[in-house]
Simulated assay, not measured.
Amino acid sequence: MYLTRFRLNAARPGARKLIASSQALHAAVMSSFPDLLPSAAGRPRVLWRLDRNAAAELLLYVVSPGRPDLTHLVEQAGWPAAAASGTPGWQTYGYAPFLDRLDKGGIWNFRLTANPVHSVRVRDGQPTKRTAHVTTQHQIEWLLGRQEVGGFRIQEKPQERRRTERGDLHQLVVRDQRSLEFRKTGSTGPVTIKTVTYDGRLEVTDADALRKVLTEGLGKAKAYGCGLMTLAPIST
């Protein structure tokens, strides 16, 4: 497995086009793997996430079973002149050594962009429909409900840091809520996906289960930049 980071040059029209369209960015990411055919059945999962840390700091993260070649992204949305002079256009790291170091009880900061949804039935007798969670509390509950199977536990805040006596329990922030709207082939109308980004702190409860989350993703809409969780040492 590999973890790749690529910084987009927000001043370039090609970068702005990719930022504006999850479909276009997904296609660009998948074009980084010459051995993966778009129509191949059972092809390995490639996860990606776009972090919008600031207007000029747009970072694309990719977790993949193979090493990507992002030359086309450098040319379209990066700094081609810098790359031509020897400055790497992206950084790719072997992911296995990090994954192997995960142990039960370890504490990490994490970031996750996800598509928190639930199934509802509007009328009796009708099939359920997948619907996005729209309130922060329900979005938090969606993630908390995946802790056990995901092999992690969101850390609680010390009592003195909680803003209210009953709420604000976890070391978790929900931010950057976005609605992605696009048309899929064969669809009669636009498709809308609601995404949110979680920043928080977790404890590893099952290292194998968490490794699966980190390499296979969490939740729906993985093709559209959702599901990729990354970890960072708490010192950062």
Rank of each mutant, 00 (worst) to 15 (best):
M1K: 06
M1T: 05
L8M: 05
L8G: 01
N9S: 10
A10M: 05
R12L: 15
R12I: 10
R12P: 09
P13N: 00
G14V: 09
L18G: 00
I19V: 11
S21G: 03
Q23F: 00
H26W: 03
H26S: 05
A28V: 04
M30A: 07
S32K: 01
F33I: 06
L37H: 11
L37T: 14
A40C: 02
R45W: 00
R45Q: 11
L50V: 04
D51P: 01
L59F: 04
L59M: 12
L60R: 03
Y61N: 12
Y61G: 11
R67F: 14
P68N: 01
P68K: 01
H72N: 12
L73F: 08
Q76I: 13
W79L: 15
W79G: 08
W79T: 14
G89W: 05
G89H: 07
G94P: 06
P97M: 12
R101P: 00
L102T: 09
D103E: 14
K104G: 14
G105I: 03
I107S: 06
W108S: 03
W108R: 04
R111V: 10
L112N: 07
L112Y: 04
L112W: 06
A114N: 00
A114R: 00
A114Y: 03
N115H: 15
P116L: 07
V120C: 02
D124P: 10
Q126A: 12
P127R: 12
P127C: 07
T128P: 14
K129A: 11
R130I: 13
V134G: 04
V134Y: 09
Q137F: 02
Q139M: 07
I140R: 09
I140E: 09
W142M: 02
G145D: 15
E148S: 10
G150T: 02
G151S: 01
G151Q: 05
R153N: 11
R153E: 15
I154F: 01
P158M: 13
Q159S: 11
E160Y: 13
T164H: 12
T164Y: 10
D168M: 02
L169F: 05
L169H: 12
Q171K: 10
Q171D: 05
V173G: 09
D176T: 13
Q177I: 14
Q177R: 10
S179H: 11
T188I: 00
P190T: 15
E203R: 14
E203A: 14
E203L: 07
T205N: 09
D206A: 01
L210Y: 09
R211T: 08
L214H: 00
T215H: 02
G217D: 06
K222R: 13
A223F: 00
C226G: 02
G227I: 06
T230Y: 05
A232G: 10
